[in-house]
C-alpha cells in the first residue's frame, strides 16, 4: 500500500515536470511577442529589446526554461543582470520561490497575483463541492430508492433541467433575483471564512450554488445509476436472506458499494475546480483565479497564463494520485499493481 502510494507519487512528479515543459512552450507557441505585450502599446524597438532583456526573453529556450524552473524551486530576479543589480538594485524585482514570473501588465509578480486570488477560488470550489455532494448524492439515493415513482421522476427531471442551463445563465438569474430583486441574500462578495464564517456563507452561497448546479445535476444521475447497479447485486439478496432490516440493507450494504466509485469521481471533479471557475467568478465579479485567467488571456499576459495552467494541472494530477490511493484503501479488491 505504502509502496503503491510512493510509486504513484513518483509518477505524478514526472508528470508534473513534463507538464511544466509543455506549459512553458506556451511562450514559444504564442503568436505574439511576449516582450512586446509586456512593454505596452507605444514601444520603440529599443524599449522592446530592453524589456526582452530584462525578462530574459533574449536567452535561448532551454536557458529560459532553466530560469523558469530555477524560479519555481529557488528564486529569480527581474531583470536578471548582475550589472544592474550592482548599479541600481532598487530597479530589480526580487521573486522568491515559487516564482512564476513577472506580469508587466499588472506590474506585479505572478505569484503575488495568484496568492491573492487562489483562496477565493479554493473556498468557492470547496463550498460548491459540499453543496453538490450533499444535494446531488442525497437526491440520487432518493431517486434510486423510489425508482420509477414520482420522487424519482421529479429529481431526474430537475437534474435534467439543471444540466441543460448554462452556468452563466444560472449565475445571472440567481444574482438578479435572489440577490438584487428579492434580496434573500446580500450582494455576493468574497469574505474570508476565517474572518467571518457567516459572512462567507451569505456572500458565497450564490456563486457556490451556481458552480454546484451542473455538478448536482450530474451527481443525481451518477449516484442513481450506481445505486441501481448496487441494488441489483446478488449480495443484497444475501443480506436480505440473513434477516437484516431494509434500512441496514440500504445503508450498510448498498451505500458502501454505490458510493465507493463516486468518491473517486468527486475527487477528480474537485481537483479540476480548485484552480478557478472562470464563468462563475466573472459573473459574480469574484477576484479568483478563474477571473484572472480570463483577464490574462484577453490581455495576452503570458506569465500569468502559464502559471494558471501549471497550477490547474498540478491540482488535477495531485487529485488523481489521492483518488487512486484512496480507492485502493476503500476497495479491498484493488491490488496495488
Amino acid at each position: 500500500m505504502f509502496a503503491f502510494a510512493v510509486r504513484r507519487s513518483l509518477a505524478a512528479v514526472v508528470m508534473l515536470i513534463v507538464m511544466s515543459m509543455v506549459t512553458f512552450l506556451l511562450f514559444i507557441a504564442s503568436a505574439t511577442d511576449p516582450a512586446r505585450i509586456a512593454c505596452g502599446k507605444n514601444c520603440t524597438p529599443a524599449q522592446i529589446a530592453d524589456v526582452k532583456h530584462s525578462l530574459g526573453y533574449d536567452k535561448p529556450i532551454y536557458a529560459q526554461y532553466g530560469l523558469f524552473v530555477e524560479g519555481l524551486v529557488h528564486e529569480r530576479n527581474f531583470p536578471d543582470d548582475p550589472a544592474i543589480e550592482k548599479n541600481a538594485p532598487q530597479t530589480i524585482v526580487h521573486c522568491s520561490a515559487p516564482c512564476f514570473g513577472y506580469s508587466h501588465i499588472n506590474t506585479a509578480l505572478v505569484s503575488t497575483l495568484i496568492a491573492q486570488r487562489l483562496p477565493v477560488s479554493v473556498a468557492i470550489a470547496i463550498f460548491a463541492f459540499v453543496l453538490w455532494m450533499v444535494f446531488g448524492v442525497l437526491s440520487g439515493i432518493v431517486a434510486a430508492l423510489f425508482r420509477g415513482r414520482w420522487p424519482d421522476k421529479l429529481l431526474v427531471g430537475l437534474a435534467l433541467i439543471g444540466y441543460s442551463f448554462p452556468t452563466f445563465f444560472i449565475g445571472l438569474v440567481l444574482y438578479q433575483y435572489v440577490a438584487l430583486k428579492w434580496q434573500i441574500v446580500p450582494v455576493p462578495e468574497y469574505i474570508s471564512i476565517f474572518h467571518d464564517p457567516i459572512g462567507f456563507i451569505r456572500g458565497g452561497i450564490l456563486p457556490a450554488l451556481t458552480l454546484a448546479m451542473i455538478y448536482i445535476a450530474g451527481y443525481v444521475r451518477i449516484t442513481r445509476a450506481y445505486m441501481l447497479e448496487a441494488m441489483g447485486e446478488d449480495y443484497l439478496r444475501t443480506a436480505r436472506a440473513k434477516g437484516l432490516t431494509e434500512r441496514k440493507v440500504i445503508f450498510k450494504h448498498t451505500l458502501r458499494a454505490a458510493l465507493t466509485p463516486i468518491t473517486t469521481i468527486a475527487g477528480l471533479d474537485l481537483g479540476a475546480l480548485l484552480a478557478g471557475a472562470a464563468i462563475t467568478e466573472t459573473v459574480f465579479n469574484f477576484n479568483g483565479v478563474g477571473k484572472l485567467a480570463v483577464q490574462s488571456a484577453v490581455n495576452g499576459d503570458l506569465p500569468v497564463n502559464v502559471a494558471i495552467v501549471l497550477i490547474a494541472a498540478t491540482f488535477i494530477i495531485v487529485a488523481n494520485v489521492l483518488v487512486d490511493v484512496l480507492y485502493a484503501y476503500i476497495d479491498p479488491r484493488v491490488r496495488y499493481a
Partner: peptide, 28 residues
C-alpha cells in the same frame, strides 16, 4: 408481517446461493 419474516429469514430458513463470489459483499 415484514418484521416476522425478518425473524424467520436467516434464523429458521437460510439460503445458499449459486455464485458465492457475487453473493458475498466484496467490501466486507
Amino acid at each position: 408481517s415484514d418484521a416476522r419474516l425478518r425473524k424467520l429469514r436467516g434464523n429458521d430458513v437460510a439460503m445458499i446461493f449459486q455464485d458465492p463470489l457475487s453473493a458475498l459483499h466484496p467490501y466486507y
